[in-house]
Design a protein around this nucleic acid. Structure first.
Lengths: 123, 123
DNA sequence: CTCCGCCTTGACGTGGACGTCAAGTCCAGT
DNA sequence: ACTGGACTTGACGTCCACGTCAAGGCGGAG
């Protein structure tokens, strides 16, 4: 299939696919007319990239998963490097969530206080 | 005081202060030599901007707080517009935290599963 | 032949909050 | 007089994941 179909079936755009290729995440054979030619395995790679990117993984962090699939594994997370990214991501998410919760609690407290001041006499 | 001192005392840089001025968050009198001249009230504004920006507020979201101080209130959150930003921020934070928690749980599950597969026979 | 849709590369634009550099001005100290 | 530090404006660079536009090529339908 050509790039348009791959984009459509992968739920993304041709621009994004060329961008992934520029990063070395995707590779492509060229047909006689110079156009990129893809197969079902490439669609698998695109799906892996998208599903990870959609939940907030940086494209660089999808690289081990893509490589893992290229190496013939059935899933992108069957390799140590991918699992390591999982671990790091969970740690990052934990830290991020904790920080946001602290900020939320702080803002909530400020909100409470400000509302208190605007209605000084009971109510 | 001049911009260098204000930056130092406000825990930021001269570049940032000029940027705030370009956004209309900060204003400045010019001395005879064309240099910016600030007072303690300006330092108060800078502190307000920084304390909000440091916890993730966009600069635009600090505008009501700055305006509130300019209007002579003792705190930046003594005005309805500021309180409204607080409310919106809490809602945004709640949504963001929920999303990140869902992602974290999903990644955790994937991690568990991947580790399971790599050690198939008990252990 | 012409049109349309698909493809190609190259390059600039986006957003947010500045960093960094250039070239010049101004003032205090020695 | 000179040096050094602080100041001025203007403008380009950064990060990330593309969006968007330009200018052109290629193939099939009518």
């Amino acid at each position: 299939m050509r790039i348009g179909e791959l984009a459509r079936r992968g739920g993304t755009t041709t621009r994004a696919l060329r961008y992934y290729e520029s990063l070395g995440l995707l590779s492509s054979r060229r047909g006689a007319n110079g156009q990129r030619e893809y197969d079902e395995d490439d669609l698998r790679l695109v799906n892996e990239i998208r599903s990870l990117a959609d939940i907030g993984f940086a494209l660089e962090d999808t690289r081990p998963f893509v490589q893992c699939l290229r190496d013939g594994h059935r899933t992108g997370d069957a390799c140590p490097a991918s699992v390591e990214v999982y671990r790091r991501k969970v740690a990052e998410l934990d830290a991020c969530i904790s920080r946001l919760q602290a900020v939320r609690d702080q803002v909530r407290a400020q909100l409470q206080e400000a509302e208190q001041r605007s209605r000084p006499c009971g109510r």
